[in-house]
Write a protein that binds this DNA or RNA. Sequence first.
DNA 1: ATAACTTTTTGATATAGATCAAATTTAGGT
DNA 2: ACCTAAATTTGATCTATATCAAAAAGTTAT
Lengths: 188, 188
Amino acid sequence: MIAPLIKHIERFIPVSDTLTDRLAKIARLQKVKKGKFLHKPGTVCHFTYFINSGIVRIYYKKSSKEITDNFSAEGEWITSVYSFMTNVPDRCYIQALEDSELIAIDLQQLEQCFMDFPEMERFGRMLISKYFLEQSERIISFRFHSASEKYQYFLRVGKNKIQRVPLGMLASFLGITQETLSRVRAEK
Amino acid sequence: MIAPLIKHIERFIPVSDTLTDRLAKIARLQKVKKGKFLHKPGTVCHFTYFINSGIVRIYYKKSSKEITDNFSAEGEWITSVYSFMTNVPDRCYIQALEDSELIAIDLQQLEQCFMDFPEMERFGRMLISKYFLEQSERIISFRFHSASEKYQYFLRVGKNKIQRVPLGMLASFLGITQETLSRVRAEK
DNA sequence: ATAACTTTTTGATATAGATCAAATTTAGGT
DNA sequence: ACCTAAATTTGATCTATATCAAAAAGTTAT
């Protein structure tokens, strides 16, 4: 069912019936069990995933440690933007942290959709702009926030994700060690 | 003269004569002397600037210190993306570091241009995507690079900007102190 | 329930880079 | 060229958080 995806896109642009039909055609529903992978290193990430339900993370390995780059839950997207856009293999892993249901969209079909439906191209521009602004905030956070502030910030804007992700993954996402996060949580 | 801008856009999409005409109509050529401002805090930043010549920085104040957020030179863009896109005032300053010549484009006219020329919307999507990927690299840099590595990285990818920006501004851009940057440069 | 593993917490120490302070070099204006 | 101010360097501490190590708490399978 692509209804949640349509609803999501409608927050940015009006979605005609013909566009809905096209999206239904290119969307591939996909279910993954907790712990399983949507993508592994060495290959190009051809898909971007819209999450119907569940929670998914993207991470990579750095000297045997796992660095979590992002978490995405229902109503959000996840992919290796770099690999997806440039068609270059990436060393990242995309892993479900709960049993999840996703809608996978292939880049080539998405680009064709952009060509055929200018309003969809518009949606694409608005969506990537939104993520651009989120990243800007993240840069500010890495530059100026203490470990404690990073955690407080995640509590505020991370929605309900806090209860759904293991501490170690959260620490690496915030750019601090597990031990520091544990101490920060113990304060107050 | 908007020729450099057209040439820039043509790196992403073909530019028809009618699109060129439209761009000529909405582009405002602007010259700024070294040290002067294109934008100051408290107002909405209604323009995005394409730089024909010169070098410009965007910065804001944090407890009386200036934090440089970015430098842009010929062939690049600069604006407060946040303010420009959301129509919310920003506390940033945009300042010319050399006598510069810019092409200012108003958001409303740009959006109308997007509506009338879907290929221009496509350009907008591609451009913001490019900046998204640059930001991703910057996040990696803030998370994992030492002061020295940040400096080395800027030497490699910052092109000729290194000779054109004062050390203190570069340090704040890299997220280290002036003193640390000075020591790092003295190495080797 | 118990064993085996994983995750989280707690403790002790080390370190990169910040901060504070002052000297030196560089640059702009008259 | 000279004077003043700004930019950069050098030196001496300080601090937040990483790192290393081990204990405690929680989870999963038999």
